[in-house]
C-alpha cells in the first residue's frame, strides 16, 4: 500500500487541509509525517503553532494512523502524559475505515481543535472544565498556547 501512501502524501502537498502543512519527519520514511497546524481562529489555540506526529502503521490503511501531539496542548481529547495521544472517533481501531483518506483524518484532528468531544475525553478534569466552566477552560488553553505553542 506504499503506492497509496505516496499518492495521499503528494495530494496533501498540492492541496493541504486548512491551517495545515504536511512533511515527512525523515526524508525517506513515508510512514512518519509531521503536521504543522496553525491554531484555528476563534479557538483558544489561535495564534499558536502546533506540531503533530502522524505515524502510519505498516498495516495502513487497515489500521488507523496514530496521532501524537508533540506540542503540549490543553485539550480534553489529548493525553497530557508527554505522548500527546489523540485516539477517538474514527481514529480508533474498531471504527477506522480503510476507505478513509489521511486528508479526512487530518481534517478531523483540526475539527477537534475547534470543537472538543468531552464525552470521549482522555483527560476527565479538562473535560469537566470544558463542559461546566468554559471560560476557565478557554483561559488555561490560551495560556498553554502562548507558553508552549509559540510560532
Amino acid at each position: 500500500m506504499t503506492k497509496r501512501i505516496t499518492k495521499e502524501f503528494a495530494d496533501l502537498q498540492t492541496e493541504p487541509p486548512e491551517d495545515m502543512k504536511v512533511d515527512l519527519i525523515t526524508e525517506n520514511d513515508l510512514f512518519k509525517w509531521v503536521v504543522t497546524i496553525n491554531g484555528p481562529k476563534d479557538t483558544p489555540y489561535a495564534g499558536g503553532l502546533f506540531l503533530v506526529h502522524v505515524i502510519l502503521p505498516n498495516e495502513y490503511p487497515f489500521k488507523p494512523p496514530v496521532i501524537n501531539w508533540k506540542t503540549k496542548i490543553y485539550h480534553p481529547n489529548v493525553t497530557n502524559d508527554g505522548k500527546g495521544t489523540m485516539c477517538l472517533g474514527f481514529l480508533r481501531d474498531g471504527e477506522w475505515k480503510p476507505s478513509s483518506r489521511m486528508a479526512a483524518a487530518l481534517e478531523y484532528v483540526r475539527q477537534l481543535m475547534i470543537e472538543p468531544v468531552p464525552d470521549d475525553a482522555v483527560d476527565p478534569a479538562i473535560a469537566e472544565e470544558y463542559k461546566n466552566n468554559r471560560k476557565q477552560f478557554f483561559k488555561t488553553a490560551k495560556q498553554w498556547t502562548t507558553t508552549y505553542a509559540k510560532p
Binding site: 487497515f62 489500521k63 474514527f90 481501531d93 474498531g94 471504527e95 477506522w96 475505515k97 480503510p98 476507505s99
Partner: peptide, 10 residues
C-alpha cells in the same frame, strides 16, 4: 454501513 460494514475488523 458506516459503523457495521465499512470499518475494518468489525
Amino acid at each position: 454501513c458506516s459503523t457495521h460494514i465499512e470499518p475494518h475488523a468489525v
